[in-house]
Simulated assay, not measured.
Amino acid sequence: MKYARNIKGVDPVAKRKIFSICMIGLMVLYLWGCSSLYRTQEDSTQEYSSEVEIEENLFPRKAIQIVVPYAPGGGTDSVARALADAAKKYFNKPVLVVNKTGEGGAIGMTEGVNAQADGYTVTMVTSELVTLPNLGLAPFTYSDFQPILQVNEDPAALTVRKDAPWNTVEDFVLYAKNNPDKIRIGNSGEGSIWHFAAADIGKSTKTKLKHVYFDGAAPAVVNLLGGYIDAVTVSPAEVLTHVKNGELKVLGILSAERISSLPQVPTFKEQGYDVAVSTWRGLGVPKNTPEQVVEILEAGFSKAAQDLDFIEIMNQLELGYKVAGRNEFLEIIENHHQAIKVLIEELGMEAANNDK
C-alpha cells in the first residue's frame, strides 16, 4: 500500500515525462520490428531470385540425345559418336546417339525439328537439310532449325570395286557413254548430297547413270562390296578402310584440291571435269529453343569439338575437320541452300516447293 501511495503521489509533470519515455520506447520497438520484417521479406526475395537463377543454370539436368538421320557406321554416325564421347565431360551428363533412318535423312531431321525445344534433343544436321526441302522431299526447311555448331566437311569420292574395269574417271565415263543407264551408282538416299554428287557427275560428263538409293552411306558401301551396285559417291572416310584393305578403289575426288587421306587420287578437275561436291555436318536444335540453352549447347559442344580426343578420332577416321560457330554455320547453310537451288535447275531435277 505504501508503494501504491507513492505512485499516486507522483508529480503530474513527472507522469508526463514517464509517459513520453514509454511512448518513445514503444515507437523504437515498432520501427525495429518493421525494419526486421522488411529485411526478412527482402532476404526471402533475394533467396528466391537466386533459386530461379540456379534452376536456369542447371541445364542440362539429364542426358542429351543426338539424333543421327542415317544408319550406324557411316560418316555422319561416326562424327556424332566421336563428338558425343568428347562432350560428356563438358556437360557432365550422358550424351547419347540415336539413329533415325529413312528417306535420305528426312525421317531423322523431321524428328529433330518436331522435338521439344528444351535443348535435350539435338540433331546431327547435314547438307540434306537444304537438298531435301529444295526437292520437296521433306516437311521442313533449314530455317526450322537453330544451328549450334559445324564440325565437319568432306568431298564426295567416286569409288568402285578393286576388280572393276575402270582405273580413271575417263575409263568410267567412256563406259557410261557406251552403256547408258547400265552403271548402278549408289548414294545415301534420294535428294541426299551424294545423290547430287552422282547427278552432277552425269551432267558434267554427259552420261546417264542408274541411281540406287540407300538409307545412308554405310549400306550403300556394303552393297558395293557385295556386287549389287557398281559404284558409290560418298565421302572418302566412308570407303577408306576398304580402299586400304584392297577391296575398293577411288577413281576421283570431287573437290578443288587433292585430300591428305588419298593424296595419290586426282581430283575430277585434274582429270578434265569441273565437278566439286561436298557435304558438311553439324548440330541443330528446334528454332524456338531458349537462347540461354542454345548458348550453353554451343559452348559445351565447341569445347568437345576442340577436345584432343575428338580431333584424334576425326584424324583416325580421316574425316574432314572444320569447326564453325552458330552464326558462321548459319551463313554456310544459307549459301548452300541458294547453290542447291541453282544446281537443281541446271540438272533439270524436279523440285517441288523450290521457293522455300
Rank of each mutant, 00 (worst) to 15 (best):
P165L: 01
D163K: 08
T126K: 06
P94R: 05
T101L: 11
P165S: 02
L158V: 03
A197I: 00
E190W: 14
A84D: 06
M109N: 03
A115W: 02
D171R: 01
D144I: 12
S143F: 10
I201V: 15
T159G: 03
V97P: 02
L83I: 12
K182R: 13
S188N: 09
F140T: 09
A80N: 08
A115D: 04
N187D: 14
V173Q: 05
V151R: 03
H195V: 08
A198E: 04
N92E: 14
G104W: 09
P139C: 01
R184A: 12
F196W: 03
N187V: 04
R161W: 05
A84W: 05
T141E: 11
F172E: 06
A138L: 03
R161S: 10
Q150L: 11
L158Y: 00
G191P: 10
V151K: 04
K93E: 15
P165R: 06
N178E: 15
K177D: 07
K206P: 00
D85C: 07
A84N: 08
N187E: 07
G112Q: 08
D85W: 14
R184K: 15
Y213N: 15
D154V: 07
A80S: 13
R161Q: 11
E170A: 15
A164K: 05
P94M: 09
L209T: 00
L96C: 08
K162P: 11
N114H: 11
T207M: 03
V151E: 06
Y175L: 09
R81W: 03
V151A: 04
I185H: 04
V95P: 01
A199E: 00
S127I: 11
W166Q: 05
G104H: 04
L135S: 12
K88P: 11
M124C: 10
K89V: 14
G102S: 03
V122L: 09
K203I: 00
A87K: 07
N134R: 13
I193S: 14
Q150C: 12
P180F: 00
E111D: 14
A117G: 05
G112R: 04
M109T: 12
G108W: 00
N92M: 10
Y213E: 13
N134F: 06
R81S: 15
D200S: 15
P147T: 12
Y142F: 14
L137Y: 12
S127D: 08
V79A: 13
S127V: 07
P165M: 01
A138H: 03
D200I: 07
Q146W: 13
I107C: 10
D200L: 10
T110W: 05
T205A: 04
K210P: 07
A106L: 02
P139G: 08
G186L: 00
D85L: 15
S188T: 04
V97G: 02
P165E: 06
A157Q: 02
S143M: 11
D144A: 06
V113R: 06
G119K: 05
T126A: 10
P139Q: 01
A157Y: 07
V125D: 02
A82K: 09
P133H: 02
A156P: 07
N99P: 00
I183T: 00
E153K: 14
T131F: 03
F172G: 01
N167A: 12
S188Y: 12
L132P: 09
A164F: 02
K177G: 10
L174M: 13
Y120M: 01
F196L: 01
V151L: 11
K203C: 00
T121K: 01
P147H: 13
P165I: 03
K182S: 09
V212T: 12
D171T: 02
P139T: 07
Q116E: 14
A106E: 14
N167P: 08
